[in-house]
Nucleic acid binder design. Structure first.
Lengths: 128, 128
DNA sequence: GCCAGTCACTTGCATTTTACAAGTTACTTT
DNA sequence: AAAGTAACTTGTAAAATGCAAGTGACTGGC
């Protein structure tokens, strides 16, 4: 326990594991970074920021810091001269894979088709 | 296709199913509402707002509108005099169950223990 | 009829987060 | 020395969030 980082503790807003998880990955960007680290071989700041969704650089930097602080991502040099760092998932980060697969599957089944037109499957519409 | 609602279309920021899903459920609150509708028998505005995480009422109202617009939730009267409405998941909403289970499982495995202390599993720490 | 109470929201406003553009630092290549 | 590249940081405007208070429809008791 000695040598712990100075970082502040975080008080969760509830006991619920879902709520807790969402406090960490419940935003529009974090899981996309995890996706790129997990499946798309993107491990540098540059590579991550060039993804199709065009994450703003300040958000990317902040999210990477957070993921590192929570132990989902590791930052390590992959060369000196010039010194450059790469980002990799830890075991804890890699454990998000089934979650990512589920999100992907749901989106694929329910949000496909380019532009969304607001009407559920037949029989599910509000008969206003 | 006649009788479609006037609602605006939505242009997704990328083709990725994960990204698309996150544009809908990628925030701190939406999946908690789905959780309550799916598992906790909460179907009224009142019941939903009384959950442990204390969602602000304006956010709850806005999220319910969004979920309805996207066909994940249905709003229907459960009594007249006074007229009251209940919220229920549609099939599309219920299809989020495996996703919710995965989030719960990850959180349970990696975020348990009340206050978070920032250090990954042994061997995963940045040896700074 | 009048008053208190409940439910389901809406409104106003302060705070926080996000988005976009531009700038900075360190180092390399020409 | 000049130009280029990677990895950020900073500034600022726009949007989302959080909190408190207010509103409207109705009900039930006196």
């Amino acid at each position: 326990m000695a040598g712990r980082q100075p970082a502040e503790d975080h008080a969760f807003r509830s006991e619920c594991s879902i709520s807790r998880s969402l406090e960490l990955v419940g935003d529009k960007w974090t899981l996309l970074i995890v996706r790129d680290l997990m499946w798309h071989g993107k491990h540098t700041f540059q590579a991550l920021q060039e993804s199709a969704e065009r994450i703003p650089t300040n958000i990317l930097a902040e999210r990477l810091r957070r993921l590192i602080r929570w132990g989902l991502v590791r930052r390590e040099p992959y060369q000196d001269r010039p010194l450059r760092h790469a980002y990799h998932l830890t075991d804890r980060g890699r454990a998000l894979e089934p979650l990512l697969l589920q999100i992907m599957q749901w989106g694929h089944a329910h949000l496909d088709g380019g532009l969304y037109t607001p009407s559920g499957p037949a029989g599910e519409r509000d008969p206003s």
